[in-house]
Design a protein around this nucleic acid. Structure first.
Length: 569
DNA sequence: TGCGGCTATTG
DNA sequence: CACAATAGCCGCAG
């Protein structure tokens, strides 16, 4: 039997490669297919109805991408749960509990002994227990015991989606929250694709760059240790004293003391100012650079994370951390600039690279609604009008604005901060308000509706009242909360942009291969370069409208078409 | 073995 | 060295 689904209808899907797939539409249509047919039927439904697929979380997205299905629209219960409730903890049991207003502390777990005879859910009890929680056996794998279970799992997903929909609609003064939930869902799917596709790397080029720091690839562990000792010697020969481990900061301090140099720590920026005091400083800085490559971005890193197809792959999360930025492992978010020449588009393809200009101050203007600051965003360089208004240099204006968003209270920016307060009282008031609430341990919510929990982080352990410790912690919470409102909203804007680009670039055979907080790298067929470039640029304006309809803030992107990542900018 | 401190890299 | 992140090595407690 074949169920029909209306175009754009919400259709929950439970999918497991070994079991098959079950779908349940919001208007009651259902279908289920065994493993052999599931992939094709889902792809067919995607083409015919183009539903908004509802699924429990990233595992389903990964399974679909692995099966070759790349849906256009989705609703990721896990991603929306993290948006609504904050933090990183999620998973079906928590998502279900939150949607049904159950205490997460009451979530049942499987006793360890039961793990050994876990075949199918208890016959006596259904998926929803008497206390309202999901049966842990179902959560741990029972949901894909057979097609019948998949159908029930999909039906439950549909129920959670309705609850989330209602919760989003009730968010006070945040009309963009439902749009943010959709963007966050698509971003989660994008993460599954980023994991699958990887970032194109020219391995011989990467090896050549690594070799300039630490020489050719060691033949074995002994050789590796020998080469490391040779590097150590280049530093230690400047001050031949016994038993110094350069990897131990305390040892380095005493080494420098022999050269008559006393430092509170041995960070590079501090050592750089002491370059002319002793030649060992220069040698030590070079050693640090090489050590970094050897341990973190060397041959082992290449072997572990670059596949035989020349793609660098890491684990992606669509909304980790404080304010919901995307995160990635395997060095995808902190690749040293020196290695970027190794990021090369494949033959016949190009990179369309774009970054959002001055995204955080523009976001500040948008979320605060400060008319004067909004006016400043009309400039390509919004620090210029701010500097003119304050009567300071552009550099001072920039430091002051960034300092206001980070919570800086000392240094050069602090003086100009008073100027900001009188010139842009609405924007500064917005930041101060966020900081005050965070200091008091009150939860925050970003423009797009992401909850930033502060209450959980207020535990101060053993302290005797409001002493210096507690005041310092409160101040740290204030800076954290102040910044989370900006960084979090910027992350929402970025993801909205990214998923628009993802959808439109796909029709040209192009894929996003890197997301970097305010920067996109799209791997596109050479003859689609101009089209994708337009998609990226137009996408910024589309994102501005979707994320914040009606606001007069101008957002800008710097876009270029290159073969090598490092050729941009 | 796990965790905090230090260090380096990025936006 | 403000805000965020990942990741490596070291010393120290258990």
């Amino acid at each position: 039997m074949t169920a029909t689904f209306a175009p754009g209808e919400c259709v929950a899907v439970a999918f497991h490669p070994g079991t098959g797939a079950a779908v349940v539409g919001e208007h009651g249509g259902t279908a289920a297919w065994p493993p052999g047919r599931a992939d094709d039927e889902i792809a067919r439904l995607e083409r015919s109805a183009g539903p908004r697929w509802i699924w429990w979380g990233p595992d389903t997205a990964r399974a679909l991408v692995a099966a070759g299905v790349r849906p256009a629209r989705c609703w990721d219960l896990d991603a929306v749960h993290r948006l609504l409730h904050g933090g990183w903890r999620s998973g079906p049991a928590r998502v279900w509990a939150a949607a049904n207003e159950l205490d997460a502390a009451g979530i049942p777990t499987i006793a360890p002994v039961d793990l050994f005879h876990l075949e199918s859910p208890d016959a006596g009890e259904g998926v929803v227990r008497a206390d309202g929680h999901l049966d842990p056996g179902w959560v741990e794998g029972g949901w894909h015991a057979d097609l019948e279970c998949l159908s029930e799992w999909a039906e439950l997903a549909l129920q959670v989606q309705r609850a989330q929909d209602a919760a989003l609609a009730e968010l006070d003064r945040r009309p963009a929250a439902p749009a943010t939930a959709r963007a966050e869902s698509a971003a989660s799917l994008l993460c599954a694709e980023l994991e699958h596709d990887g970032l194109p790397i020219e391995v011989p080029t990467a090896e050549a760059i690594i070799a300039t720091y630490i020489g050719p690839r060691p033949t074995d562990a002994t050789d590796e240790a020998r080469l490391a000792a040779v590097r150590d010697e280049l530093v230690l020969r400047h001050l031949p004293i016994g038993d110094i481990d350069l990897r131990n900061p305390a040892n380095v301090k005493s080494l420098l003391r022999r050269a008559g140099i006393e430092v509170p720590d041995t960070r590079a920026w501090r050592l750089e100012q002491l370059r002319d005091r002793h030649p060992i400083i220069e040698a030590l800085l070079a050693w640090r650079k090489a050590e970094r490559i050897a341990t973190t971005f060397g041959y082992r890193w290449l072997d572990e994370h670059v596949g035989p197809d020349g793609r660098l792959r890491g684990r992606w999360s669509s909304s980790d951390g404080a304010a919901g930025r995307m995160t990635a492992t395997a060095g995808l978010h902190n690749l040293p600039a020196e290695l970027r020449p190794a990021v090369v588009a494949e033959s016949g393809r190009v990179f369309v690279r774009a970054d959002l200009g001055q995204i955080e101050p523009r976001i500040l203007a948008a979320v605060s609604g400060d008319e004067s600051l909004i006016a400043a965003t009309l400039d390509d360089d919004m620090y210029a009008p701010v500097a003119a208004r304050l009567g300071v240099t552009r550099d001072i204006a920039k430091v002051a604005v960034l300092g206001a968003m980070y919570g800086q209270t000392t240094g050069q920016g602090a003086v100009a901060l008073r100027g900001l307060e009188s010139a842009y009282p609405t924007a500064m008031g917005y930041l101060d308000d966020a900081a005050r609430r965070a200091e008091g341990g009150n939860d925050l919510r970003t423009r797009g509706g992401r909850r930033v929990p502060m209450s959980a982080s207020t535990d101060s352990g053993n302290d005797d009242g409001p002493g210096r410790e507690e005041r310092s912690r409160a101040a740290a919470r204030g800076r954290y909360g102040r910044n989370a409102m900006i960084q979090g909203a910027a992350a929402e804007f970025f993801k909205t942009w990214a998923v628009i680009v993802r959808a439109r670039a796909a029709t040209h055979g192009a894929q996003i291969v890197l997301c970097l907080h305010d920067e996109l790298l799209v791997h596109a067929p050479g003859d689609a370069a101009d089209a994708v470039r337009d998609i990226v640029d137009d996408g910024v304006q589309e994102a501005r409208y979707r994320w914040s309809p009606g606001a007069g803030v101008r957002f800008v992107a710097d876009t270029s078409v290159v073969s090598r990542w490092s050729d941009a900018k």
